[in-house]
């Protein structure tokens, strides 16, 4: 089955998170989840906040991705994201605190609060907590 694998690279501005082969990669694009297998047509897509799942037989590894984009070509998949991390790197306490902070901001009805930003922060926190909680 080795020939049916696709190379995946996850790159962020500060480091290279992943550079290995995978059987299937499922990611959250801006128009919904997409799964990519070996031999996929060239594709460039923007990514939403969410999980990226790397499937190798029975194994499944998850990473959280916050925006960015992915390009698929004959060399494989390249995911470029501002922030990407493994669940074990996530600080649960920090994510919890961020969630509460964001919720308070949204609830506060204060005009000076940037609701859109607070909502993004809340979504990030929720995804991080979900990654931790599985």
């Amino acid at each position: 089955m080795a020939e049916n694998k696709i190379r995946l690279r996850i790159v962020t501005p500060v480091r290279e998170l992943y550079d290995e082969e995978a059987e299937m990669v499922i990611m959250r694009s801006s128009i919904g989840d997409i799964g990519i297998l070996h031999g996929h047509q060239p594709l460039t897509t923007t990514l939403d906040y969410g999980f990226l799942r790397i499937i190798n037989g029975e194994d499944e590894v998850k990473a959280t991705i916050f925006g960015g984009f992915a390009s698929v070509d004959e060399r494989g998949i390249t995911v470029l994201s501002d922030a990407a991390e493994w669940p074990e790197e996530i600080d649960e306490g920090r994510a919890m605190a961020a969630k509460e902070r964001a919720e308070n901001r949204i609830r506060s009805n204060d005009d000076s609060v940037d609701i859109a930003r607070a909502e993004l922060a809340l979504r990030r926190a929720l995804i991080r907590l979900e990654a931790k909680g599985k």
């Binding site: 128009i31 047509q41 060239p42 460039t44 923007t46 984009f69």
Partner: peptide, 17 residues
């Protein structure tokens, strides 16, 4: 083969991003 590439949502949006 570049012309075969699909862009999601579309080329402009990808470039915009």
């Amino acid at each position: 083969g570049q012309s075969l590439t699909i862009y999601e949502p579309d080329e402009e949006a990808v470039l915009e991003y």
